[in-house]
Design a protein around this nucleic acid. Structure first.
Lengths: 143, 143
DNA sequence: ATAAACCTTGGATATAGGTCTAAGGTCAAG
DNA sequence: CTTGACCTTAGACCTATATCCAAGGTTTAT
């Protein structure tokens, strides 16, 4: 069992953030101590880990809540519903990854065009990388 | 040359957003009409495309500004500086992609464990997927 | 030549996601 | 048995990223 400050420290967030997540319906401590302190279990800790990882990959707290609600409602959920929700999130992730890949290619092209030495950056600009990218997009559209 | 509303419509954003980006130092129109209208060039349009793509992959406006500043300062920049900045952003992207991949694997495991039929979701919960994930992480740490 | 649809500026409002403050209760160490 | 680190609540405040509004000037279509 962890007190709020311990759990916060373990994940390098503020206690306030945990209280905020609780108010948002994302993560409530499994119990309270006799003096009213929030007491978090190992499972709560895992849920928090999930929340933070999901946030890190760009999901909103609302998205995360909907994923976690599977857990809360599991007796009332049916597999098909769960699967549909999860598959939707998987598609979101795939879209994000495709965008990241495209952006990575653009920046990589910029880095490659760049001399890397102490000469002027006259010919290594974001705009030049973008221009080639636009060309590439046009090219793709042609077939 | 595009007027603000034309450019906004082309990217499905509001004119307000373009004025906002200008105030933030991200994108100023290349010129103004005699009556003071913002006039955007093809290059401005490309810069906007860059801004929106960068935003879509999770960069903040501040991050994007630092990338664009390469362009503005290019006469005063040296390739090495540009390359270092771009490489830092490339690393950011690689980290994001690794996180997305890991998250995708977790959710995929959940979807796979899920029957997909109209039975109770008793055994397809985010937490169960997480538990296996934690095990996997522990496993990785062991070698 | 006038309405619709633009544009201008400056400032108010909104939403997400926290972060901090005030006023006070609890707990472990010296 | 007090000091300092923790905890409680309610609510104010903050940053990022827009979006909207007011009051007025300009352009385009009819």
């Amino acid at each position: 069992m962890y007190r709020i400050g311990e759990l916060a420290k373990a994940f390098e967030i503020k206690s306030d953030t945990l209280r905020f997540y609780e108010k948002q319906g994302l993560l409530a401590p499994s119990s309270r101590s006799s003096s009213g302190y929030r007491m978090y279990t190992e499972q709560d800790k895992q849920t928090l880990s999930f929340i933070l990882r999901a946030k890190a990959v760009g999901f909103s707290l609302a998205d995360i809540k909907s994923l976690l609600s599977i857990e809360v409602d599991k007796a009332n959920s049916v597999c098909a519903d769960v699967k549909a929700l999860v598959n939707a999130k998987l598609t979101d992730i795939e879209v994000k990854m495709a965008e990241l890949t495209r952006f990575h290619i653009s920046l990589q092209r910029l880095a490659d065009a760049c001399c890397g030495s102490a000469k002027s950056a006259e010919h290594c600009t974001v705009l030049e990388a973008l221009e080639s990218d636009v060309d590439q997009v046009r090219h793709e559209h042609h077939h």
